[in-house]
């Protein structure tokens, strides 16, 4: 088992390298010239050239990539072309916000979604199942930013209950922080809640339908409860997979949520950087996001190895 885990961890490195090369290639295909964008409103050709030199845009592509990579290995992700802020600072400023958004959304979705999913499974094909399933399907189908804006109109503009936007760091003011996060978490979490409900429902149905549950029924209440708990544990495995698969999507979705609610997170920072052609920021943040997601997937794989040794052997040829 240990060797498997180590192998998995090591495989992260080539993966991250590949991602960085892909991103670098993509970024260099972006039209528009950072030098021209940064220069004020007039400039001679020499000034433009000088700016390009300074930004290192005249080196060959492999050279630029190599310079960047060298820096990364030494812990230097470069500086923003736009404001001069070190990329690492930008990341440490922004990452906690997105992280909190995602974490709270997952917690919110799980706390609401799992019990609802169980209800659906137990009350299968009854009214409540239909209603809950239908509502959760609608939740998946709504664009998150639309939900967000509607929430702002209702809770901030009309009711003045919650702030329309902004962010207060948790350690400064826990209550204020939570107030600013309520609406964004709700908007982000709806889709995930719906998915969890459906996954829990189908996973529970799978497990509950099996033979030993029938025998449990005949053996009495206590046994049933025990088996129910056992069933839940097994059912949670696909749910965990579903959540981890959704998280990558949620990071992407955080872009619009952060825009609408003015959260200073990584998603928005990256999108702004793409629009501003701020290459170092894009590369640095892309790297961090990719590493995070890969680590997450690896973590899920590792959990699987622990939970069910059988699963880790599937996919191997005889």
């Amino acid at each position: 088992m240990a060797t498997q885990i180590v192998k998995k961890l090591l495989s992260i490195i080539p993966l991250v390298l590949i991602i960085s090369i892909i991103m670098f290639a993509l970024i260099n295909m972006l039209p528009g010239d950072a030098a021209l964008a940064l220069l004020g409103d007039s400039g001679t050709l020499e000034q433009v050239e000088q700016m390009r030199e300074e930004l290192g845009l005249n080196d060959s592509m492999p050279a630029q990539y190599w310079n960047w990579l060298k820096g990364v290995l030494q812990g230097d992700l470069g500086d923003s072309m736009f404001t001069g802020q070190p990329v690492i600072d930008r990341i440490t400023e922004r990452m906690p916000v997105t992280f909190e958004l995602i974490l709270l959304s997952v917690v919110f979705a799980t706390i609401i979604g799992v019990p609802l999913g169980i209800v659906c499974a137990v009350k299968r094909n009854h009214m409540s199942d239909y209603i809950l399933s239908a509502v959760s399907m609608v939740g998946v189908a709504m664009p998150a930013f639309w939900v967000g804006m509607l929430l702002i109109i209702l809770f901030s503009t009309k009711l003045h209950l919650l702030p329309a936007s902004g962010y207060v760091p948790f350690f400064e003011d826990p209550l204020g922080n939570l107030k600013t996060m309520v609406l964004p978490v709700f908007a982000t979490g709806i889709a995930l809640t719906a998915t969890i409900v459906r996954q829990t429902r189908s996973a529970m149905l799978d497990v509950l339908g099996q033979d030993y549950m029938m025998t449990a029924k005949s053996k009495g209440v206590k046994y049933r409860v025990q088996l129910f708990r056992h069933a839940l544990k097994n059912a949670l495995i696909p749910v965990i997979t579903a959540i981890s698969m959704q998280i990558a999507g949620m990071i992407g979705g955080s872009v619009v949520i952060e825009t609408v609610f003015l959260l200073p997170g990584m998603g928005k920072s990256m999108v702004d950087a793409i629009f501003q052609r701020d290459y170092p920021i894009v590369m640095g943040e892309a790297l961090v996001i990719a590493v995070f997601i890969i680590l997450l997937n690896t973590l899920v794989d590792v959990i699987y190895i622990f939970i069910d040794p059988r699963i880790s052997h599937s996919g191997k040829r005889k």
Partner: peptide, 14 residues
């Protein structure tokens, strides 16, 4: 795997 380790929206945006 590398491609999918990246949020789809950001990739599409780039």
């Amino acid at each position: 795997e590398a491609l999918s380790a990246f949020p789809m929206v950001m990739f599409a945006l780039t």
